[in-house]
Design a protein around this nucleic acid. Structure first.
Lengths: 365, 365
DNA sequence: TTGTAGGCGTTATCAG
DNA sequence: CTGATAACGCCTACAA
């Protein structure tokens, strides 16, 4: 009965049924050009009868427009990217576009593959949270093909792409200033960093410090940390800074614990991303350290749980949803033909002070 | 210089440059059919020179295969869907497919639109977490077009689709049994339910209770709750059950608080989903109720924060990642031609007992 | 081994 | 107002 697979009806099918030419049927269905009143009705009846609906692939082929964009992030299961994706999708939906999602797991090879595939699929724009600051040729390909790219979370100064980033350095500066204001002198820092492109922290001859490495969020945040300390003439030591290579999940907890139990004895810890915030909090609980009496804790990203834990966590909050939306807006502006110079959109963060940061030394010390 | 937009090179361009016909170039590039050794080399050189890469839209049009699937969930920012999406993407990626994401916000109209759009985009399969148990015609459309659908999180018994669901009733039964074992007699239940398709809970003449409404997860979980109580001859009352209409966010906190402060005085509360778990936890904190001394709390979904809060939360854990993967596997099995009868895959859950549930009455009561 | 021709479904152009 | 026809880029019979 139904051999040959239930094929979707085409304009030709509708035309045949309505007794008109494909051209006429097309005009009636697409709503362009002139069509006689009763002809239109017959075509529409046939269309309804057959359950016709246009084949978008064929349309894309003809028009060159696929009405789809791509998102390349490291992991959709990460709440930051999940929210950002939501923001992007919302804007895309408003514009009548669909969003294709890919995960790079911070791996350059997967990201390159994803971009290539998306480009081959003829997406009309790309939002990318790049995993590498130096290997960017695959992104240039997009540009060469006239496909606009908006960078999310990380800027690539050497490329001519819009970017939406948080005010990382300022945020970290404010965070550390807050801790200094509270009287802290030994402020540790915990950061997740790329395994392949780890920043290097170096002391200058004049006692100043510098972070070597491209401007990823983690690097900018470390820079803000150092700057805040320097401006207050607070001492800096390498012991204060613990870097977690993002791919070696196993070592993360050990690293967090090592920071806590180091001989240097930090009185406060600033975690520069949601993952290290989670890690340090868990480590603190495991070690039975009292917060904020014995240690102040300041995290990054205002995830679900920051208000549920005890004590409620002070954090630097950014809004991934807003950043995703912003990225979407920029992208569609480009898709629609905006040819202005690249824009680096810096999304403000908020320092939310809850109960995990307190005056040092505390009254009972 | 570059007016007319930098068009992507096509096989024709490569062929022209290599001085061969399109067919030959196509064969050399696609790796099918016979091509002379040096011809191949010339074509490949031209291809590299031009930076050729096939236009997948044209290929899809010819082959009828788009190598893409669609996911329709209510909200990618919800950790359940984010993780499930990750699972689906991973399987799709392995199969060389891309995944298009849409958000329905539990709204039937958006879901219908999404399915239609996806179908028009010629996706080869669909994973859907349906928002309605009764309005399902748009899903039948997919079937009629030969596009397989796998249902996630919710089964639609009246349709011939595979589904991947949690063992909701069993899970709730186990959860309540655990609370009963601890000595609890007044066990409240908090559930988020669809605003438009709210379940109804009715007492039978013989003292038994029934839940009227389609088998959504929430309904099945309520059923497990009632069954467990009935089997132990524990009393049931309508006061024990609080339903939160999923769209009226404002009322959620009030509802959670009302349950806690009701004259009926529950000694334990079972929250049947991650949202109501969050809500009840927050309400408990706000009211200053001691857990588990004055109230035992049992949640659903083992989200990030359950181990970070004090006390660590006992929960029924499901694995959205595994469920997403499962859904992906089923879908690709269908895409590859599996014609077996529909399968309802029930993913087991685990009851994780932490510190928020304790013996009642406690020693200090 | 290589080239020619036709079609996937839609839309636009051009005659009638 | 309507119909024939071509084109988007790729793939594949079929012919040379």
């Amino acid at each position: 009965m139904d051999h040959g697979r239930n094929r979707r009806p085409t304009v030709a099918d509708v035309a045949r049924m309505a007794g008109v030419s494909v051209a006429t049927a097309g005009r009636a269905l697409g709503g362009y050009g002139y069509v006689g009143e009763q002809t239109r009705e017959r075509v529409e009846a046939a269309s309804r009868e057959l359950g016709y609906s246009p084949n978008v692939v064929a349309r894309s082929m003809r028009s060159g427009s696929t009405r789809s964009i791509g998102f390349v992030g490291s992991d959709i299961a990460d709440p930051y990217f999940a929210e950002a994706m939501r923001g992007i999708c919302d804007v895309a939906h408003r514009e009548g576009y669909e969003t294709i999602l890919t995960n790079s797991d911070e791996r350059l090879d997967l990201e390159q593959l994803a971009v290539r595939t998306l480009l081959d699929k003829q997406v009309e724009g790309l939002v990318v949270a790049p995993s590498s600051m130096t290997h960017v040729d695959h992104l240039k390909d997009a540009k060469e093909q006239g496909v606009p790219v908006v960078l999310l979370d990380r800027d690539l100064p050497q490329l001519d792409f819009d970017s939406v980033v948080a005010d990382n350095e300022t945020a970290a500066y404010a965070a550390i200033s807050h801790l200094l204001d509270l009287g802290h002198e030994r402020i540790g820092l915990l950061a997740s960093v790329s395994a392949s492109e780890q920043p290097e922290i170096r002391a200058g001859t004049d006692g100043s410090w510098a972070v070597l490495g491209a401007d990823r969020p983690s690097v900018e945040r470390i820079r803000g940390y150092l700057q805040a300390l320097a401006d207050r003439r607070a001492p800096v030591t390498t012991e204060a800074i613990t870097l977690i290579a993002a791919d070696r999940v196993g070592g993360a907890d050990a690293a967090a614990r090592a920071l806590l139990s180091s001989a240097w004895q930090p009185t406060a810890v600033f975690a520069t991303d949601n993952e290290s915030t989670r890690r340090i909090f868990l480590a603190v609980k495991a070690e039975g350290i009292k917060v904020p009496e014995h240690l102040s804790l300041l995290g990054f990203d205002d995830t679900d749980w920051t208000v549920m834990v005890d004590p409620p966590l002070s954090v630097v909050a950014q809004s991934p949803l807003a950043m995703g939306r912003m990225a979407g807006e920029r992208l569609f502006s480009r898709i629609k033909g905006d040819r202005q110079p690249k824009r680096r959109i810096v999304q403000p963060t908020r320092l939310i002070i809850r109960a995990s940061t307190a005056v040092w030394p505390g009254p009972d010390w």
